[in-house]
Amino acid sequence: MIIYVIDDDEVVRQSLEILLAGEGFETEAYASAAEFLARADARTRGCVVADIQLPGLSGLDLISALRARGFTLPVVVVTGHGNLALAVEAMKRGASDFIQKPYSADAMLAAIRGACEKQGEMEAESPDLAATREGLAKLTSREKQVLLKLVSGLPNKIIAYDMGLSVRTVDSHRAAVKKKMGGGSLAELVRKCIAVGLLGAESSSQTPSPSKLNANLKETRAR
């Protein structure tokens, strides 16, 4: 099991690495969330321990980025005293647990082991989870946009209008998405997206309603 330690304080990173190595964990340390995200791919497994107040991308941003990419890595966030509201927000975004500074070695180890155990149970219940993650990692940015709109219930012609594409192009992207995601019906795609935490990763408020888009299409044709 690899524990990814993300903290901009080198002393903290080294201390955690020593603690975790003593308990038999393999570790990788990063000074920023961006550095970790640049290295993470569909094969990345383990548990993330990240300070919630990181430079650049915060711990909250990190969780959102991981979930948006389809990663289900458990994340234990570390918060400072008095940051309970941030810790709660982290849990809402998908963090497995949080721990407040100053923390004891036992408390940190308990949080990590608990997060790893929960993740193991989830993956045991969903044997195709790894395949789904790998499929998501193969999608292009445009294909992922199409996928998110498909699982939101939008038909191809509405997706085409919304994205400024032809219906034929959307059909092509849809076929590529199904192939890379292992085929199946739209309902199966929805199930897979829910399983990896992707569904809802982007705000539905950004997408006009079907009725509004239909009205826009009619207006465009009338011109």
Results as ranks from 00 to 15, higher is better:
residue 4 Y to A: 02
residue 11 V to H: 02
residue 23 E to D: 12
residue 28 E to F: 09
residue 28 E to G: 11
residue 29 A to K: 13
residue 30 Y to T: 07
residue 30 Y to M: 10
residue 40 A to R: 05
residue 41 D to H: 12
residue 42 A to H: 14
residue 44 T to N: 03
residue 47 C to E: 12
residue 55 P to M: 10
residue 58 S to H: 08
residue 62 L to G: 03
residue 64 S to L: 01
residue 64 S to I: 01
residue 67 R to T: 04
residue 68 A to Q: 14
residue 68 A to E: 15
residue 72 T to G: 07
residue 75 V to Q: 08
residue 78 V to M: 11
residue 80 G to N: 10
residue 84 L to P: 02
residue 85 A to G: 09
residue 87 A to Y: 01
residue 93 R to M: 12
residue 98 F to N: 09
residue 98 F to E: 07
residue 100 Q to A: 15
residue 104 S to T: 15
residue 106 D to N: 13
residue 107 A to L: 09
residue 116 C to W: 02
residue 118 K to N: 02
residue 119 Q to Y: 08
residue 121 E to L: 12
residue 125 E to N: 10
residue 126 S to W: 00
residue 126 S to C: 02
residue 130 A to L: 08
residue 132 T to M: 06
residue 134 E to F: 00
residue 134 E to K: 06
residue 135 G to N: 09
residue 135 G to E: 07
residue 138 K to M: 15
residue 138 K to Q: 15
residue 141 S to G: 10
residue 143 E to G: 14
residue 148 L to V: 02
residue 149 K to P: 06
residue 149 K to C: 12
residue 150 L to K: 13
residue 153 G to R: 07
residue 154 L to W: 09
residue 156 N to R: 12
residue 157 K to C: 05
residue 157 K to M: 06
residue 162 D to T: 13
residue 165 L to P: 08
residue 169 T to Y: 05
residue 172 S to R: 15
residue 178 K to R: 15
residue 182 G to R: 11
residue 194 I to T: 09
residue 201 A to P: 11
residue 203 S to C: 13
residue 204 S to D: 11
residue 204 S to Y: 11
residue 205 S to E: 15
residue 209 S to M: 08
residue 212 K to I: 11
residue 214 N to I: 10
residue 215 A to L: 11
residue 220 T to P: 00
residue 223 R to M: 14
